[in-house]
Design a protein around this nucleic acid. Structure first.
Lengths: 338, 338
DNA sequence: GCAGCGCTGGAAAGCGCTTTCCCGCCACGC
DNA sequence: GCGTGGCGGGAAAGCGCTTTCCAGCGCTGC
């Protein structure tokens, strides 16, 4: 049903040159080819609609042009922004991005890595936040080793423990600075919607926040753990409202959770910021359009994606590099003086 | 620096069988292999950490496990939802998704298609909305032909003109139903923030909306064209406010534009819905958290992605199939009686 | 008892490309 | 005039896998 694909051999034959010459012309090898032959080959290729077979090239060169990108959920703005950064850099480098989604299942992450290894991907960016679970950590580490062993590079976003290149946002420092800023507004009773306790990112932000409160001489916050999603934030906020804490300010460890929390507050008739101040973390683009505007710690998400892709693409030495990006506290309408 | 990859040949040798046998065991061919040998091969493969070389397989089988996904902007919730649907289906089918972003440049779409052809992708989902520009249409059609010629399948989301499988949302019908619903609220003076005039999706929604107004005996709307983005909506809304039209209800052809428009209204002190009603189209998930909640036409975005992936994956006959999905008018707090 | 069959295992021919050799040619220096 | 070196071109050996084809073997059926 389908016409066979034009091969290099056909181009070469048509152009009356050898396979080698055609290859040299069409892929910019180091070797020179006379202008005459070169022209002829180029013209014939054009005319025949020749497109090199990437699999064959990958096989012959023993290296592919694939870059993996592993995220938990591409509809989450946090990940889609990072993805945008990664794809931009990869595409500029003439590479092709393979998108894998884990649905937050650690074993899926391992599977994806293995698939990417099968494809001899040249590099992988792991954007999902890692857990502290020993077993899955170990399996992941093993896969990563296998992957690098084979010549691929791996970079993680926001998790430094794996011995890979990493882009590390200032989770702890950001949480701390935010806590101080909020304490300065006069709040005394804080709550934190903390995400699953085994998530490193969540833990770091929480730890930083606690430290910041301590700096300011404020009592430790009530902590409510929930899923790392909008609905998790929603549930956690409901739980908070159900308890009889006299909280005046709540920190959700991600903006996405904060959005859910705001929805819960709204439904319950709790006014933001009059009755309750709320802040998030990440500064996802969606925040521009929430009412009231959400206070947060801004992370340059797309840039983080670009950085990760950059790390993973320029060969670099053998030891793991770390790029830190700072979070910047941004106070908006959702947090008020108390 | 990196240990070479384990090959089938090594596994075969270790296990003391031929290459052919090892291959048959490790890829589920039709041929049977005795349990004894099979076991031995499996064990050795496991032990050596063998992972088949996907490029080599693709080359030998002349078919790869890649599925392309082309979107304009992965951070746009419309696209990220579709992407989620596509990746889910593809991953279930054991395929790997290649993500390409065009940044809304038609020529980039053609490039990506060509790259995917080079990789012998088995299928492609084109999620970006097509333009009516003749030249780029033609180039795209040519690339699509080349792609299918070579045995790949192509499906489009929301653009039926290319002779490929298509998932078609009821843009026209949705626009029309929305217009009627809004007219029923008593509005008489409408405006439409229409996106770029050459975008088919935008045109269809606008045309449907106009038809709906006509149905209801209401005067045609003021139309303001702008970019198909949040900022485009923002600008268009400002322009609308600048003009001295006495509009009471505005329809933005996408939710994303509507969000921008709402921001503009908010800034200008125009209350929604008291001073101005506003509605969008798509029902992106973000909408759950806007205040006031945005009226819209709901499209099952993830499902559309799944449908497109489904079309493109089960071989199907030779003629182009079309799956229609209906839009459902959802009136929320952003639209009020007039 | 033997032709014929079904079944399993292996040898080997590709798949489409890259790259290493090697060869012939020319310009050069002595 | 002849060795030398550099340079452009081609033959051919892979890259790691799949798959065809063939060989051997134990059966069945006459």
């Amino acid at each position: 049903m389908s016409a066979r694909q034009v091969t290099l051999a056909e181009v070469a034959k048509q152009a009356g040159v050898s396979l080698a010459t055609a290859s040299r012309v069409l892929n910019g090898s180091t070797r020179q080819v006379s202008e005459e032959l070169s022209d002829r080959v180029l013209r014939t290729a054009e005319q025949l609609g020749y497109v090199p077979n990437a699999s064959a090239q990958a096989l012959a060169r023993n290296s592919s042009s694939l870059v993996g990108l592993v995220v938990h959920d591409i509809t989450d703005p946090y990940f889609s922004c990072i993805a945008a950064g990664v794809t931009r850099v990869a595409e500029e480098a003439g590479l092709v991005v393979v998108l894998g989604t884990t649905g937050r299942r650690p074993e899926r992450e391992v599977e994806l890595l293995s698939t990417l290894r099968a494809h001899r991907a040249r590099a992988v960016v792991l954007a999902g936040s890692r857990t502290t679970d020993r077993a899955s950590q170990a399996r992941l580490a093993a896969e990563i080793d296998a992957f690098t062993e084979q010549g691929g590079r791996v970079a993680c976003v926001s998790q430094a423990k794996l011995g890979t290149d990493t882009v590390v946002p200032g989770n702890r420092a950001g949480g701390r600075a935010l806590a101080r800023a909020l304490a300065e507004l006069g709040h005394k009773k804080f709550a934190v919607l903390g995400g699953p306790s085994e998530l490193v990112v969540a833990r770091d932000r929480l730890a930083g926040f606690k430290a910041g409160l301590a700096d300011a001489g404020v009592a430790p916050p009530v902590v409510i753990n929930g899923a790392f999603t909008r609905d998790g934030g929603y549930e956690a906020a409901l739980e908070l409202l159900g308890s009889k804490s006299r909280t005046t300010c709540v920190f959700a460890v991600t903006d996405v959770m904060a959005m859910g929390a705001m929805a819960a507050l709204r439904e319950r008739g709790v006014r933001v910021p009059e009755d309750m101040s709320i802040a998030g973390f990440d500064d996802i683009p969606t925040l521009r359009d929430t009412v009231p505007a959400l206070s947060t710690v801004r992370l340059p998400l797309e840039e983080m994606g670009e950085l990760a892709a950059g790390l993973v693409l320029d060969a670099g030495g053998d030891e793991a590099r770390t790029v830190r990006v700072a979070g910047e506290v941004v106070l908006r309408a959702s947090t008020a003086h108390n």
